[in-house]
Design a protein around this nucleic acid. Structure first.
Lengths: 165, 165
DNA sequence: CATACCGGTTGCATCATACAACCGGTGCTG
DNA sequence: CAGCACCGGTTGTATGATGCAACCGGTATG
């Protein structure tokens, strides 16, 4: 799809990430810190097929949303990172998560992160994006800044533990 | 698609509006105030096919995002309205528009509204959603509240005029 | 030296989308 | 009251996207 249907920002966004899998891949990279093909393939509940995952990783790479690099520690491994446009999808995912949490039959464990992101607001999203810039782009950030990712992950794990009890 | 892939709010949102047309239909209803089948069919630049439009209107209705009612003024006409969940997609579209405007080759005329929505922030979105509740749900709102829709439309038309000059 | 893991690829079935042509009923106009 | 444009779709067909399972050669590990 090279020819664009229109120059509308919403339309163009949909042409790039308007399908059922792209944002889930980005979600897993963002909130699950999954960086390798196998992690993305087997790590999430939705069960993406390997050919679809390969296709999405290629498209997102070509669109400049993520980047692909060989892993120095293992000749065969490839590490995927969020590029700056991918990092800036945090507010989109936050908005989509808030909406879904309100209007759809979400599970408690999987929606706790959306709830925290909603309560934290844009200030929290910015801190999170700075953290992602450090993790994925190697951009240093001031010491002492807490980890939003750890905060979200801990809350998620606590909900899992509560559910099992 | 009745069986859900997971209870994640982002995933569930994508299962409902994660395709290339649903959000465009909602966009046209929201920002273009298009309420009839033909308006939606012929009004936008992207050129949706009539069977796809019919399918999306039906799905969105079944999902409770929009509603469908006969038009009293014309026996054959059907009027589509945003339901509350549809109105609450405003922040999602604003986020998606901001992102697209930054990272994709948008046209100036079609991105002015995204720019204004971004600058206006959540306060403006709330005013806009109140206005949509009046237009689509008949919920009265305080007099003297300005029209965000008119503001956005005027800015858009001004950009069109500038482009033609 | 065997085994598990690495990022994918291939073939095939099925589902969604795209395009154009068409439908019967309704309202407006001359 | 005849003709015509418009109403919300439907139908058929072609093409593309997706889903599924099996498989690939190269690589690290015990």
């Amino acid at each position: 799809m090279t020819e664009k249907r229109s120059g509308c920002p919403i339309n163009l966004s949909l042409e790039v990430i308007g399908d059922k899998w792209s944002l889930l891949v980005i979600r897993d990279m963002t909130f699950g810190n999954r960086r390798y093909f196998r992690e993305l393939l087997t790590g999430s509940e939705e069960g993406i097929a390997s050919n679809i995952l390969a296709d999405r990783l290629q498209r997102l790479t070509e669109a400049g949303i993520i980047s692909r690099a060989p892993d120095p520690s293992h000749k065969q491994k490839v590490i995927y990172s969020l590029a700056e446009p991918g990092i800036q999808l945090v507010p989109v995912m936050a908005a989509l998560g808030s909406w879904g949490r309100r209007h759809l039959p979400v599970s408690r464990e999987l929606s706790i992160r959306a709830e925290l992101l909603e309560r934290g607001g844009p200030a929290m999203w910015e801190r999170f994006m700075d953290e992602l810039r450090e993790l994925h782009l190697g951009q240093p950030r001031p010491d002492g800044a807490g980890s939003v990712l750890a905060e979200l992950t801990e809350a998620y794990l606590a909900e899992i533990a509560r559910a099992e009890r």
